[in-house]
Simulated scan of single mutants.
Amino acid sequence: MKLVRTEDAEGCILCHDITQIIKDKKKGPVFRKGHIVTREDIPVLLSVGKENLYVWEQEEGMLHEDEGAEILRRICQGGSSAEAAFDGAVKCFRYMSASEAKEGKIELTAETDGLLKVDSGALYRVNSQGEMMIATRHGNTEVKKGDKLAGMRVIPLVIGKDKMDRAEKAVQEENGGAPILSILPFRAKKAAIITTGSEVYKGRIKDTFTPVLEEKLGHYPVEIIGHAVCDDKPEMVTEAILRFLGEGADLVLCTGGMSVDPDDRTPLAIKNSGARIVSYGAPVLPGAMFLLSYMEEGQAVMGLPGCVMYAKRTIFDLVLPRVLADDPVTAEELAHLGEGGLCLNCPVCTYPNCGFGK
């Protein structure tokens, strides 16, 4: 790239878009990057205040901003340019599509409903290089087809190839060269609901918990294959868990009986089913008395506290998408939810576009 006087730019190739702004009428490129300047263009360029222009001049070891952006795209999305070709101008790979590079910038968009995963360590390594940037949504966030996932750009008009090579090497050192971003699509699941509590079992009160879960599960590819109402006896709940698992349930949700009252025996019932308890309790409000466990074959069994019934967003909303995307949750990950784990119960809920669980 070199700097030339506009009057001397005839025949030169523009390195970037030239924007024209006319108040209340227009804001946009009057000439696109790559345009070859003609004699007739010069008065127009001068009229938009461009007395000097950056024009393209290939230099050894230097990359155009769009070439650098394509490398960032590959670091985020994975795959080579050939593997990711789609409709000529858009790249679709790993359930996400990429916009055409423009002014050194590329955006990624979800091509399916699922769970966004972000390698935070690798992302930090790239953003620490300077002269380049990648901004993403939070990881472990549920996304819908069409949602914007990330934007990346090279800051200067040209960048050293060695600098882009260092960025790729940093990711290689961090995670072996795996893509920084990935989407785990939601999988079709079979679920069962077990309502616990003598007050419901004996008909003293109406079960208002199950309809809440049916509504939440209805937003995902989940088939509810059974529902049981059990007394507070742990052996009855355990029997129901094992029965539903035997009938093919991938997910068993036990409601109620999660506090420390003498009659609340759901955690014991889940333990007696042979499930591996990941955590009983989570640093999230609402949802502190939540229990997550997995069977040896991978099915998830959860104990849901009463807040899931009456609070709009709880720990259940944070964990459910991960279970439906076959992304196992660890005790360490649950412990990390403390920062951001306080739902502010906003008058208008904007979850997941808020700080809850982030």
Score class of each variant (00 low, 15 high):
residue 62 M to Q: 13
residue 328 P to E: 04
residue 43 P to M: 03
residue 113 D to S: 01
residue 291 L to T: 15
residue 20 Q to E: 12
residue 347 P to H: 08
residue 242 L to I: 10
residue 170 A to G: 03
residue 121 G to D: 12
residue 185 P to I: 10
residue 37 V to Y: 05
residue 131 E to S: 15
residue 109 T to M: 11
residue 318 L to Y: 10
residue 268 L to V: 12
residue 234 P to I: 05
residue 18 I to P: 07
residue 330 T to P: 07
residue 354 C to K: 05
residue 71 I to H: 14
residue 189 K to C: 09
residue 148 K to T: 00
residue 166 R to E: 15
residue 343 C to G: 09
residue 136 T to C: 06
residue 33 K to F: 07
residue 267 P to S: 09
residue 348 V to C: 14
residue 100 E to S: 13
residue 211 P to Y: 09
residue 145 K to W: 04
residue 11 G to A: 06
residue 327 D to Y: 15
residue 222 V to Q: 01
residue 27 K to W: 14
residue 196 T to N: 06
residue 149 L to Y: 01
residue 50 K to A: 04
residue 201 Y to D: 04
residue 347 P to L: 08
residue 132 M to G: 02
residue 77 Q to D: 06
residue 260 V to M: 15
residue 302 M to E: 06
residue 230 C to R: 11
residue 168 E to L: 09
residue 123 L to A: 14
residue 1 M to G: 12
residue 78 G to A: 08
residue 15 C to I: 05
residue 272 N to H: 03
residue 93 F to M: 13
residue 8 D to S: 14
residue 59 E to G: 15
residue 32 R to E: 10
residue 257 G to V: 07
residue 279 S to W: 10
residue 206 K to D: 11
residue 246 G to K: 02
residue 44 V to D: 03
residue 121 G to S: 14
residue 2 K to F: 03
residue 133 M to K: 13
residue 38 T to S: 15
residue 229 V to C: 11
residue 58 Q to S: 09
residue 258 M to I: 03
residue 314 T to L: 14
residue 156 P to I: 09
residue 202 K to A: 05
residue 207 D to I: 12
residue 176 G to D: 08
residue 356 F to S: 09
residue 110 A to W: 02
residue 65 E to M: 10
residue 276 R to Y: 10
residue 186 F to Y: 15
residue 6 T to I: 02
residue 321 P to L: 09
residue 154 V to H: 02
residue 20 Q to S: 04
residue 127 N to Y: 08
residue 48 V to E: 01
residue 328 P to V: 06
residue 255 T to Y: 00
residue 165 D to N: 06
residue 260 V to Q: 07
residue 212 V to G: 02
residue 23 K to T: 01
residue 147 D to A: 01
residue 219 H to R: 14
residue 201 Y to E: 10
residue 298 G to T: 10
residue 44 V to N: 04
residue 285 L to P: 02
residue 310 Y to P: 01
residue 68 G to P: 09
residue 281 G to P: 08
residue 75 I to H: 02
residue 209 F to E: 04
residue 223 E to H: 04
residue 209 F to T: 07
